[in-house]
Write a protein that binds this DNA or RNA. Structure first.
Length: 269
DNA sequence: CACTCTACCTGTGCGC
DNA sequence: TGCGCACAGGTAGAGT
């Protein structure tokens, strides 16, 4: 699930947690699977966090940041969910699940738990979020039109590949790349330099629309239909089914090793 | 710079 | 029912 909208909904759920996690003190850190901690040892990671107050939560692209202070000095924990990571807030004494990789306990009796079947997700320590996002493009949810246009104009790549490139725009993954291109009526293999300003504007609008919808519903769903009050997948995973706009058969191809879904009639090359 | 391939892991769903 | 295989929402790093 984790693309920008899913990560955003995790951030919001932490910010709005009751009883509040913000302002609570870390009292325990358990790297149930030691490999979840990158860049340092689980012991140092744990020792660095314990006793600190969770001050803030933020997001850039698919990266989540926890700002923790101690004696007025702030550090941050960066978290990337990768393919299958999930964050839960639960009671501090909840037993770890089969795929639980990290548990951070707080003095309010609650815990942040990171579960990840495939063990791709990682946490690490950074001085500031800016350190971790140095190589990333602007956040896809907040990027402005002018910057989007200029960055796209600076590239000569296939649109699908470009949208997935986090150094171009941070936060779009495979699902929302396909959804955005479908909504914009642009073929995934179309070259960015072939777009006119109208095309670029449609793509910008499509990215915004898709992400806004998805954030509003807490993210996409797993099996390609609905999620209660949720985001409706327009093309992703609909190979062989009729296009929602024109009824043509949705095609699936490979672009840069990624499954790519599109309508051959609505999305002209 | 653009692109491809591999690696990292486990779970699921399919064909047989 | 069980086995083997292809595939999966992401990214880093090496190689062409």
């Amino acid at each position: 699930m984790p693309e920008l909208p899913e990560v955003e909904s995790v951030a919001r759920s932490i910010i709005n947690a009751r009883p509040p996690l913000l302002g609570s003190r870390v009292v325990s850190v358990d790297a149930v699977w030691a490999g979840v901690v990158a860049g340092t040892s689980p012991d140092i990671f744990s020792a660095t966090l314990c006793g600190r107050i969770l001050q803030g939560v933020s997001r850039h692209g698919k990266y989540l940041f926890f700002e923790l202070i101690s004696d007025g000095h702030a550090i941050s924990v960066a978290l990337h969910l990768r393919m299958t990571g999930i964050v839960h807030i639960c009671a501090a004494d909840t037993a770890p699940g089969r795929h639980t990789r990290l548990i951070i306990g707080f003095d309010n009796g609650r815990a942040l738990r990171f579960d990840d079947p495939r063990k791709f997700g990682r946490v690490w320590l950074v001085d500031t979020p800016a350190d971790a996002i140095a190589g990333l493009g602007p956040d896809a949810l907040s990027v402005g039109w002018e910057e989007f246009r200029q960055r796209l104009r600076g590239s000569r790549r296939q649109l699908k590949t470009l949208l997935l490139d986090q150094s171009f725009l941070a936060g779009i993954g495979n699902i929302y790349a396909d959804e955005s291109l479908f909504l914009a009526g642009l073929h995934p293999l179309r070259r960015s330099e072939s777009l006119d300003d109208n095309d670029v504007a449609r793509l910008y609008q499509a990215v915004k629309t898709v992400l806004d919808e998805a954030v509003g519903s807490g993210g996409a769903n797993i099996d390609g239909v609905f999620k209660a009050g949720g985001y409706l997948v327009r093309v992703y995973g609909r190979e062989g089914l009729p296009c929602l706009k024109c009824g043509s058969r949705i095609e699936k191809i490979r672009v840069g090793q990624r499954g790519t879904h599109y309508c051959p009639d609505c999305q002209l090359a």
